[in-house]
Amino acid sequence: MQRVNQIIRRIPVWLVYLMGAAPAPWLFYQGLTGGLGVDPIEALEHRYGELALQLLIVVLAVSPLRKFLGLNLLKFRRALGVLTFAYVALHLLVWLVLDVQIPSQIWADILKRPYITVGMAAFVLMLPLAITSNNLSVRKLGPRWRSLQRLVFPAAILGGLHYVMLAKGFQIEPLVYLSLIVGLLLLRVPFPSLLTRLRQADSA
């Protein structure tokens, strides 16, 4: 794994940004030229949202990969987080600008449709993460910056739930995404202390 980490250290962060951002204009072009099927707006909205979840899962996997396998991707975590938010924002913009378009209808949908309410809650939680994803914020906030970054955990769960709730009928794929998110979060739990708490609860 040391050899792999040495190779990873040579990869520039800008390349991660470039490769991560590349699907966005390509998918938009596909939508304009009929490459996304009979309902390109819905397909584009779905693909952007799916890419956001995939990147979010990679972000959540960075720490467990380092802890359990020794694979060090910390260098790219901020870039992956920024790309995640960018695709969430694109997903939202397609819904706002191309799909709904009517401002009053947007607010009504947020209030009346639970999956949209959950999705918007995830977006709101991610906003401060995106705003503070810079070196200046790290210096200014100090230890509070790390605490703020923990908002990604509830945001990830809400994002996974949003996908499950909007799926029509029973679909395996959204459940797989949610399961991966929950599983990666559970890997962060210090299991010895968790077992101690469970024993204490049983004896109470």
Rank of each mutant, 00 (worst) to 15 (best):
L93D: 08
P128T: 06
G169C: 01
L186Y: 09
A61C: 07
W14C: 11
Y87G: 08
V82A: 00
L195P: 02
G183D: 04
D39K: 10
P25H: 11
G183P: 07
M126E: 01
Q101C: 03
Q149G: 06
A89C: 03
P25K: 12
L136I: 13
L141V: 04
I106N: 05
L27F: 12
T117K: 09
L175Q: 11
V94P: 01
I41M: 00
V13E: 03
I8P: 00
S203Q: 11
M19N: 00
D109E: 14
R139S: 13
M165G: 06
W95T: 08
S147P: 04
A121H: 02
W95S: 07
L185I: 15
V4G: 04
S104M: 13
V38A: 14
P64W: 01
V82F: 02
G31L: 01
T196L: 10
V58S: 06
N5S: 07
I116E: 04
W26A: 12
G160Y: 05
A24R: 09
G70N: 03
Q200M: 09
L65I: 04
N135A: 14
Y115H: 14
G160W: 08
M1H: 15
K75Q: 13
V182W: 01
R78M: 06
A130Y: 11
V164N: 02
L129I: 10
L136H: 14
Y163I: 05
I181D: 06
L90I: 03
P12L: 07
L186V: 11
I110P: 05
K67F: 05
L136K: 15
L186F: 15
W145A: 02
L96T: 06
M120T: 08
I57E: 05
P143R: 07
V152M: 11
S63R: 12
V124S: 10
L56A: 07
M1F: 14
V4C: 11
L15S: 14
L56K: 04
L69G: 05
L44K: 08
R3W: 11
Y115P: 04
G183A: 15
L98G: 03
L161G: 07
P40R: 10
R199D: 06
P154Q: 03
L180H: 01
Q105W: 04
L18N: 06
